[in-house]
Amino acid sequence: MPSAAPLISLPAGDIHLWFCFHADTGNPALTAEYFSLLTPEDRSKHDRFHFARDRHRYLLTRVLARSVLSRYAPVQAQAWRFATGPFGRPRIEAPLAEEAHGLDFNLSHTDGLIVMAVAREIDLGVDAENLGRKAALEVAGHFFSPSESAALNALPHSLQAERFFELWTLKESYIKARGMGLQIPLDSFSFALDDPGGIAFTLADSLDGTAQRWHFWQLQPTREHLVSVCAAPGHSSPARIVCREVAPLQWERPLAVRTARASGCI
């Protein structure tokens, strides 16, 4: 991605998703360029990973975050600084947050994919899973709501793994958008996926009227990957999702991604 690339417009209400299908390029010069963007703290965290694949994924994720944010604000990639919220959610640190004019982001990774969501003045979360992984069906009864567990168990066994990942990524995207992690019990909110292509969301507390502010999407960028997005646009207009594929510091291009499901906001 050229450093002199023009800034990308990010209108209010838009959500941009950047998909990085990571693979080790084996390019020493590119790897050196990646390392030049890391802070000493980043390097220390990188070196603590035991396996080479985990070190590479961490390196790529940090470079992706820095280089993509620099496509939206006049800040050099190496200049970005991040702080961690009280429940572990990373955010842009002041004073850069003011210069970024409400820019926010969220990241997720799974086998073969890193995805980054970017928006302005929107609470958002993103979660990705590789559908080839073994679904931990045994935990559904502990972490899913009773209605989710019942709907999952009612499916033929051949369909349960995919439904598990559909529910799990939606739940993860919601708690990440809320920025509170597992302080929000996973069984305190529910998704119903009975309507083909639809997502219904409810809160266990019937007196909590905030459920309608949250919008959800599920996208399938490849046959192996599922991505869920949660956002609260803060206005009545539907959010618009724009997708790009990127190889950090090398190239980027528009990416057509099928929306597998969405809540009733669109």
Rank of each mutant, 00 (worst) to 15 (best):
D123P: 03
L193Q: 09
L103N: 14
N106E: 13
H109S: 15
N106W: 05
P185Q: 07
V139K: 07
A161M: 08
A135N: 12
Q160I: 12
E129Q: 09
F189T: 00
A119P: 09
A161L: 10
L170I: 02
A119D: 12
L170S: 06
A192G: 07
L155H: 09
L159Q: 14
S158W: 13
Q183Y: 09
D187Y: 07
D194Y: 00
F191N: 09
G181A: 08
G125Q: 01
V126C: 04
A140I: 14
R163T: 08
L167Y: 15
Q160R: 15
D123W: 02
S158D: 15
G132F: 09
K134T: 13
L103W: 09
D123Y: 06
K171I: 10
F143P: 12
G112Q: 05
L124D: 07
H157N: 13
S188G: 01
E148G: 04
D123F: 09
A119V: 00
V139E: 13
T169A: 14
V126N: 09
V115H: 11
L137A: 14
L170D: 02
A177T: 02
S149P: 06
F165E: 15
F191E: 07
L167W: 11
L182V: 03
F164H: 12
D111F: 12
F165N: 08
A150G: 01
L131M: 10
S190R: 02
S158C: 13
H142F: 14
E148R: 07
F144V: 04
D194C: 06
A154N: 11
D194H: 13
R133A: 11
S190G: 14
E148W: 10
L193E: 04
F165H: 07
K176R: 05
A177W: 01
S190T: 09
L182W: 05
A128C: 10
V115I: 07
P146I: 04
Q160F: 10
S108W: 04
A128G: 08
F164S: 13
I114H: 11
S149V: 05
H157S: 14
S190Q: 11
D187V: 00
A136D: 13
T169P: 00
E138Q: 11
K176E: 02
S190L: 05
P156C: 08
F143A: 04
S149W: 04
H157F: 10
L124C: 13
D194R: 03
P185S: 12
Q183M: 06
L155F: 08
S190Y: 12
K171R: 06
F143K: 02
D104F: 01
R178I: 03
M116Q: 07
M116L: 06
W168Y: 01
H109P: 07
L124S: 06
F144A: 10
M116D: 12
E166K: 05
G112D: 03
E138P: 02
L152A: 08
Y174T: 00
E172Y: 01
A192H: 03
S145H: 09
P146W: 08
E172A: 12
V115M: 00
A151Q: 07
N106R: 13
S188R: 07
G179K: 03
D111E: 15
I175M: 03
R120H: 15
L182R: 05
A154R: 09
A128L: 08
G125Y: 06
A192R: 05
F105S: 06
S190I: 02
F189R: 00
D123K: 08
A136I: 01
E162F: 05
